[in-house]
Design a protein around this nucleic acid. Structure first.
Length: 921
RNA sequence: GCCCGAGUGGCGGAAUUGGUAGACGCGUCAGACUCAAAAUCUGAUAUUGGCAACAGUGUGAAGGUUCGACUCCUUUCUCGGGUACCA
């Protein structure tokens, strides 16, 4: 009987479902006394295209690990859900009028079907969908907590806004030009004052406005000046928008990275994104005026190298300072840089432009006069919009100074030869020179000393700047969580808890109103009972995903987003697997919300995930056919140079091992029905290219097809076998036959004799068989713990090959082998295990991971390659030596070696792993 | 420009972390079974020279450390990812 994977897989999947095998126990339930382990995948957005073979890669890895941890006796939480709010469903709705909820539900059903076939051990009782009102009620609730909080920098944590009011009263803080106390302000003014401190706030800011999508986007949703989704141009626009004060958490987000086990490259990305710079402000008085220019610098050690000051064109001081003579040129320059869009300015960074204002500043230490320039390389939005230029030690200042022939003063002695005429020396290495009180001091110490001295002499203050900006939170879209805010006399108010969820209203069209308001403004009755209008923008895609890992812990709780009991039990995610493309998006926001929820005492963890692994992307492997120009004839890849041909994508499903199924090809499209072929070696060979997997490239491989042909276990094993988990790699169905035949060989180990009936032996295993088993257990256990799932698949193959050779069908060997195989290929492992243990067996139990025994791994004897001075000479058989000294003696006493040495005494005998030996003469 | 990561057979990739490079799989070649094909099984497969035993070369390139280097150090090239007038 051959392995009938279709029946076996269906049976076991049904068994797991009916028995709720993978249900995780919450505190108080049976099983919760075991240690907990939380394995999470980044949940998918259910797109209309369904899963392709690249999507399950991370899910398979996390499933293997979850199953392994269960065998090790852990209470494993391994849930799955859907990030089901988002743009594609809305775009589809705009085109077809179909409600996004309907398409989303259909897509989810399809995803679920596909996922189920792979045999994952998800606890589906905890499924979440971000677009479900029962879920987004709590997303809205958390928003209100953020709205009602401010960041108390003194306490270094978020607190309720009431403590801010108390603080204002206690300190008699005054506001506005009339110096009114908080209680003297009217309601609107009080609201405005508080709004400036709330963690979720409505504020005016430059935002990324995408006219094509009709919405604003967060910084991480914009790449190279175009929207990440759709690639539409994005412009900077001043708008009133709901935002998240993530900048308040900049330091905590940075510091937390040191305590979590995430890929170094990803942590580095987050560090760069946060972009902390420590430095100082320095004030320069303007010669002959009362104005003061404040600059920000990270290199106060180079203060004596300042040869001019540059202001951003947008800096308001520019117009005040400019002298009458320079007025015309400066105004012209400002107008010019205004007309250049952000994108143009980014695109030609190399162009140096600027103009002298005619004014001079006074150096605080030397009292020298230094010219003040305007240049668009200085950004208005960062620091103070003004820089002190040190051309000798900053490359941009250097380029500017050379272009306009400004003086270059060297104030740091470089340890290597450096020619200031060619380049600036901006490394923070060396010793200060020509720098008064900093002379002779190492740069790193000089920075500290300069900051201190500047502060002492009141020339400026120590300051820390961040590149990180607050995250724009409102979206002018329909398919997202409504922001739970209403307006009364144009003052924003949060909804009360019992008014949640604020349901998404039904509207006639999923488009902005004619007056350009967001789609929600189309709903006629979208207001409170007493007639106050709700906020019409919705939340961004990352809102629901910023806390979903907590909801899984207590998915059905109607009274809280998560009970503290469940939150404390499950803690943080022990293993989180997902793509690195979320580095500066989801993975930053989820850390932000976690830290916030921790601050206000709702959870007791301050990082969402202890360990994170980025699975690599699976690329498509496209196949090409070559059509002769103006003919319906196709030439095989090897001969294409001899003809004038055009390459075109061909459906990879018509191709096996790069050989085209010409019959299927003719049926593929009507115009190919009478195609002719020029063969090589009687075959039509297709060209190959690695590209992104996409429908238009005809290189999408559907997991359903693989499963139908080879089974789920083969798919699981092969996805792992393809290469290291973290690495990006092309999908290539060609190699799949290898794992497929491995499964058949495994099955055959149990099914022997002429009629292929199930036969296993209860005989005791011999040493050779035990050695195979124990080395397999050892290697697979090590591999799982290091997440190198690819090599364990090889290990299984070796084991089965060896056992086949030994004709071993002994239960003593096969049973533990099935247990360690079961995380990888659960269906076949469970089926064979059950056959091994009789019809009443319930499958492989928990707490059943075998341990290897080192004693079986040792050799009786080794053939040692003996080399002399590194040159390999001969193989000599030795008995097993237990200690190094004895082995050395045995080697030296060996006759063959003595002959080889011809009486010489070696200086050194080198023994490694009791195996490799080298004699040094 | 800057910051990460990676370069190993025809291909995907191993290598106990400094110890016989190329495990395992694909592909290819040969053989067995078959009227034949598929499937399956067996063997070969880095490269050069040789009928052969064997010898030389070989982990992007060039040096270095070491008895011994894919692994460590220096220089350099190529590819992938991130990021950018952030002072």
């Amino acid at each position: 009987m051959e392995y009938d994977f279709k029946t076996v897989e269906a049976e076991w999947q049904l068994f797991w479902k009916n028995n709720k095998t993978f249900k995780a126990a919450n505190p108080g339930e049976k099983g919760a006394e075991r240690p907990k382990y939380y394995v999470l995948d980044m949940f998918p957005y259910p797109s209309g295209a369904g899963l392709h073979v690249g999507h399950p890669l991370g899910y398979i890895a996390s499933d293997i690990f979850s199953r392994y941890k269960r065998h090790c006796g852990y209470n494993v939480l391994h849930p799955m859900g859907y990030d089901s709010f988002g743009l594609p469903a809305e775009q589809y709705a705009i085109q077809t009028g179909q409600h996004p909820a309907i398409t989303t539900a259909a897509n989810i059903n399809r995803y679920r079907e596909q996922l189920d076939k792979i045999g994952f051990s998800f606890d589906w009782t905890r499924e979440v969908r971000t677009s479900d009102p029962k879920y987004y009620k709590w997303t809205q609730w958390i928003f209100i907590q953020l709205y009602n909080s401010w960041y108390n920098t003194a306490a270094n944590r978020a607190e309720n806004i009431s403590t801010l009011i108390a603080h204002y009263r206690k300190t008699n803080a005054t506001f506005g030009p009339n110096q009114l106390t908080f209680d003297q302000l009217d309601e609107a003014a009080q609201a405005a004052v508080l709004m400036e401190q709330r963690l979720a706030y409505l504020g005016e800011a430059f935002v990324n406005w995408c006219p094509a999508l009709g919405t604003v986007l967060a910084n991480d949703e914009v790449k190279d000046g175009v929207s990440e989704r759709g690639g539409h141009p994005v412009e900077r626009k001043l708008m009133k928008q709901w935002s998240m004060r993530i900048t308040a958490y900049a330091d905590k987000l940075l510091e937390g990275l040191d305590h979590i086990d995430w890929p170094e490259s990803l942590k580095e990305q987050q560090r760069n994104w946060i972009g902390k710079s420590v430095g100082s402000t320095i004030q320069f008085k303007v010669s002959g005026r009362n104005d003061v220019i404040t600059v920000f610098t990270t290199r106060p050690d180079t203060i004596f190298g300042v040869s001019y000051i540059t202001l951003a064109p947008e800096n308001p001081l520019v117009t005040t300072l400019t002298t009458v003579e320079q007025q015309l040129r400066v105004n012209q320059y400002i107008a010019e840089s205004k007309s250049r869009s952000e994108r143009e300015r980014m695109a030609d960074v190399k162009r140096i432009s600027g103009v002298f204002t005619g004014a001079y500043a006074i150096h605080p230490f030397t009292h020298e006069s230094i010219p003040i320039w305007v240049g668009d390389y200085v950004l208005a939005g960062y620091g103070t919009g003004a820089v002190m230029a040190v051309p000798a030690h900053d490359s941009r200042d250097h380029a500017f100074a050379k272009h306009f022939d400004l003086p270059i003063k060297i104030v740091i002695q470089s340890p290597n030869d450096w020619n200031y005429k060619q380049a600036s020396y901006d490394e923070k290495i060396g010793v200060c020179i020509n720098s008064d009180f900093l002379n002779g001091i190492d740069v790193k110490d000089a920075i500290k000393k300069a900051i201190k001295t500047i502060a002492e002499r009141n020339f400026g203050n120590p300051q820390v700047n961040y590149r990180l900006r607050d995250a724009v939170f409102g979206r002018q879209r329909y398919w997202g969580e409504p922001i739970p805010i209403y307006y009364k006399n144009e003052i924003a108010h949060a909804l009360s808890d019992d008014a949640l969820p604020l349901l998404l209203p039904e509207i006639d069209k999923y488009l902005p109103t004619d007056s350009g308001e967001p789609p929600l403004a189309r709903a006629t009755n979208f207001k409170t009972d007493d007639g106050h209008g709700y906020e019409t923008s919705t939340m961004p895609g990352w809102a629901g995903s910023s806390w979903y890992f907590l909801r899984y812990m207590d998915a059905d709780n109607a009274d809280a987003f998560v009970s503290s009991q469940a939150a404390n039990y499950w803690g943080s995610i022990d293993l989180y697997i997902g793509g690195s493309e979320h580095a500066t998006g989801h993975l930053l926001y989820v850390r932000f919300w976690t830290k916030f929820l921790n601050d206000i005492g709702l959870i007791n963890i301050n990082e969402p995930a202890q360990k994170l692994i980025n699975q690599g992307m699976i690329q498509g492997r496209s196949n090409f056919v070559y059509r002769l120009k103006n003919e319906n004839t196709f030439v095989s890849a090897g001969l294409k140079e001899q003809y004038d041909s055009i390459a075109m994508h061909v459906d990879v499903n018509l191709v096996t091992n790069d050989v085209l199924d010409t019959y299927a090809f003719k049926k593929w499209r009507a115009d190919f029905a009478d195609a002719n072929f020029i063969f090589e070696d009687g075959k039509y060979i297709c060209g190959v290219e690695i590209e992104k997997m996409s429908k238009s490239k005809w290189n999408v491989v559907n997991p359903d097809d693989i499963i139908a042909q080879h089974g789920a276990d083969a798919l699981r094993l092969y996805e792992m076998f393809l290469g290291p988990l973290e690495q990006s790699k092309p999908w290539n169905t060609n190699g799949l036959s290898g794992v497929s035949s491995f499964l058949r060989k495994l099955w055959r180990l149990f099914h022997q004799g002429n009629n292929n009936s199930f036969v296993v032996s209860n005989e005791a295993a011999n040493r050779k068989e035990l050695k195979t088993l124990h080395k397999t257990i050892k290697k697979v256990t090590e591999d799982i713990n290091q997440f190198s799932f690819n090599t364990s698949v090889s290990t299984f193959m070796i084991a089965v090959n060896e056992l086949t050779e030994l004709k071993c069908n002994k239960k003593e060997i096969l049973e533990p082998l099935l247990i360690i195989l079961s995380p990888y290929a659960p269906h076949i492992a469970e089926e064979l295990f059950k056959k091994l243990n009789g019809p009443n067996n319930q499958g492989i139990s928990l707490e059943s991971w075998p341990a290897h025994n080192e004693a079986f791994l040792q050799e009786d004897s080794f053939a040692y390659p003996i080399s002399i001075n590194g040159k390999m000479k001969m193989n000599i058989e030795f008995p097993l030596a237990l200690d190094k000294a004895a082995l050395e003696q045995t080697i030296l006493n060996n006759d063959q070696i003595q002959t080889l040495l011809q009486g010489a005494t070696p200086k050194k005998v080198i023994v490694v792993h009791g195996k490799i030996v080298n004699l040094v003469l």
